[in-house]
Simulated assay, not measured.
Amino acid sequence: MNVIFGTGPLGMAVMRELVALGEPVKMVSLSGKATVPSAVSVKQANVMNEDETKAIMKHAKVVFQCAQPPYQKWHELFLPFQEHIISGAIAAGAKLVVAENVYMYGQVNGSMHEGLPYTAVTKKGKVRADMSNRLLQLYQEGILQVTMGRGADFFGPNVHHSSVGSRLFKPIVKGKACTVMGNPDKKHTYTFIDDFGKALVVLSQHEDAYGRAWHVPNDAAVTTREFIETAYRLAGFPANIQTMGKAMLRIGGLFIPAARESIEMLYQFENDFIIDSSLFSERFGLKATPLEEAIAKTLESTVV
């Protein structure tokens, strides 16, 4: 049995890939509700309860960790949140595949690759570093079979809470102005959600994928302006881009906690943010969906 924690866009992308392969799937969320194919079961569990988490993972063979606590509560909740999933995987004797981002590297000059040290100075970057180090330690001690797939800001069908989620695409499909963070003329790597989900499944299937982190396939980095101009062109409208800096985020943070928490990560949008995923593609033969095709699929799925 494949157990997926999280019924958000990434968990759903993993589910679709497993179902296409004819694999049995159980999804787990706090609500226990999700729109899924009839062959997929959805169960309720509070991951902050260790016993409940272990019970829901009984008989699991592979566990996909695609869930997270609220963004503004990472510092206090994410470590115990994931620790309970780790405990459940160990108890079940299951392999663990963990979805991560690249916060742990901190600000990098040049492209990011898997061999970089964890030099983050932000709160959330340090949390990510601690979590990754914990997973690698358990693998090295022979306690847990684990691999990590790292993606960038992702986009695609049903992606909402992302810098390039539905809040960006909804105005584009209506020909209205969209708003982006930071400097739109800096290069940025964006991850298509279907590529991320497929990559995590691929990692789960190869023994030599375990014990390390991999950058999931991404198309070549473009400037955020180029990304958005492509979306407007495919939607049939002229581009209309507005920008938002720290001042606006601080104002928004008075009312939206997630906006306040985004301020320390703004460096990713004020500088070039380029992720090298060539190692994954060379080893597993999986390349990213071409950016224009991925943006077109996102536009088609955007509900206005």
Rank of each mutant, 00 (worst) to 15 (best):
S31L: 08
S163W: 14
A92K: 05
V36A: 02
G88R: 06
A231I: 04
A89K: 00
F5P: 04
P69M: 11
T53R: 03
N49H: 09
P9Y: 14
W214L: 00
V180K: 01
K73M: 14
P257H: 04
L291E: 07
N101H: 11
K287F: 08
E229Y: 05
K123S: 15
K73T: 12
S111F: 10
P238F: 07
A45L: 08
E293A: 14
A199P: 09
V63S: 02
K123R: 15
T230H: 07
L116T: 06
G252I: 09
H59P: 03
S111Q: 14
K126H: 14
K54C: 14
V62E: 01
R233N: 11
K246R: 13
G253F: 02
C66D: 00
A209E: 08
H59I: 08
Y103C: 12
M1K: 01
Y267R: 06
Y190T: 12
M27H: 02
V216Y: 04
A231H: 06
E114V: 12
R250V: 09
V304M: 09
D51N: 13
F273K: 10
A239N: 01
V303Y: 01
P157C: 02
P157I: 03
F81W: 15
G285H: 08
L168K: 01
M104S: 13
V36R: 03
N46M: 02
G6V: 05
Y267I: 06
V108T: 12
L77T: 09
R134S: 06
G165C: 05
W74I: 11
E270L: 11
R167I: 05
L116K: 03
V159F: 08
A213F: 10
R250D: 08
L168Q: 02
T35G: 12
V173A: 00
V62C: 02
Y139L: 08
A129W: 06
G22D: 09
E264V: 05
K26H: 07
G22A: 08
P70Q: 10
F81P: 07
E52Y: 01
Y210L: 03
T223V: 06
V102N: 11
S166C: 02
A20S: 15
R212S: 08
A258G: 06
M148S: 04
P171H: 01
A45I: 07
M27V: 00
Q145F: 14
L279P: 00
G8A: 12
G125R: 02
D276V: 08
T224L: 13
I295K: 04
M148K: 06
R283I: 08
F64A: 03
K176Y: 14
P69F: 11
T298C: 03
E52N: 03
G245N: 12
A60D: 03
P157M: 04
T230F: 05
V164M: 12
T230D: 09
Q205V: 07
A89W: 07
V121T: 15
R283N: 06
A296H: 03
L203T: 03
D219F: 15
P9T: 15
V201G: 05
N271R: 07
E270V: 06
F237M: 01
M148V: 13
T302I: 06
M15G: 04
Y232K: 00
